[in-house]
Design a protein around this nucleic acid. Structure first.
Lengths: 163, 163
DNA sequence: TGACAAAGTTAGGTTTGGCTAACTATTATG
DNA sequence: CATAATAGTTAGCCAAACCTAACTTTGTCA
């Protein structure tokens, strides 16, 4: 009997809006309530684009927003944001701690891939990170072993043309 | 002195156009020259959308296309397509053979993630697959071990509320 | 060969997400 | 408190992708 109660089928959200959600979530951690300016900066986007996105998020019931007001997320906004952030962290951790990628490359890749991978993959990825961590504690460090393997392998077949 | 010779900085390509490239590449394998109809079908898109994409690809020098003609890729079109396909296959293989994900879930995920991950990550992923394969040949199968680990772990923490 | 079906294109519309420039509100400061 | 600087909004524009509906080309076959 409450229109907010209609069995939401976890509405689809564009990559772009997920990015805004994530940025707001991160900014709201430090200092409560994000400022439009900082969102724009975090996403390298014009301030006016932020206004547009906030309106969209409000319409979807994800952000508490009114002109000139401070920006927070609703319950469901926080839930969605937390999900995105979780994906992000799992991906980044995998890239860094398993694949041995540089932190900033990993960061960027995670930003993009977080929108592309569903729960099944993410859950297994998390599991895999744990598996690798365990392997470390149990004396045969898979990540370390792989890094060795990778090092010895890379540098091969760089020049396919020259003899 | 040849205008096709201007040091191309590997022009950026949208995810959408990469998808078209990939579809054309795959269709052109069997039967030489892809048909618009089949591209539309492969990508679940209207036929008119394919026409638009083909014009864009032609403008970028990636597809040989003229109205009503048969569709092939140029040299550089093939190169780009092959790159995309390679990413796709590496990702899928990782999802299936390392993470143990179902083939069709992996297929879908690879389709999306292939546009999000750069060469650094892809190269390490490939390396990692090889590492896992080697581990198999050397008698301690990491993939298998992980699947065990995952099985035993999943099913845990399903109900976080009930005691 | 001529007509019809299938394939392809064009025209025109929508949505999303971004931009700049100009305007308005808020905040800070002398 | 007045006013300048900063933050935020609005208006208007653009481009990418997609769509439907109507039209044209091509190819098939009776």
């Amino acid at each position: 009997m409450d229109e907010t109660m209609k069995t939401e089928p976890v509405q689809e959200l564009s990559a772009s809006l997920e990015d805004y959600l994530e940025a707001i979530f991160n900014l709201a951690d430090e200092s409560e309530g994000a400022r439009s300016k900082d969102i724009a900066e975090a996403l390298s986007v014009a301030r006016s684009s932020v206004t547009g996105a906030l309106q969209a998020l409000r319409e979807k019931g994800l952000a508490n927003y009114r002109p000139y007001g401070c920006i927070t997320l609703t319950e469901s906004g926080q839930a969605r944001a937390a999900e995105v952030v979780r994906k992000h962290n799992i991906l980044k951790s995998f890239f860094v701690n398993v694949l041995g990628v540089d932190a900033d490359v990993a960061q960027q890749a995670a930003c993009k891939a977080e929108h592309a991978l569903g729960p099944e993959i993410i859950s297994r990825l998390l599991s895999f990170i744990k598996y690798v961590t365990e392997s470390h504690r149990h004396g045969r460090d898979v990540a370390e072993e792989f890094r060795e393997f990778h090092k010895s392998r890379s540098g091969r077949k760089a020049r396919t043309v020259e003899p």
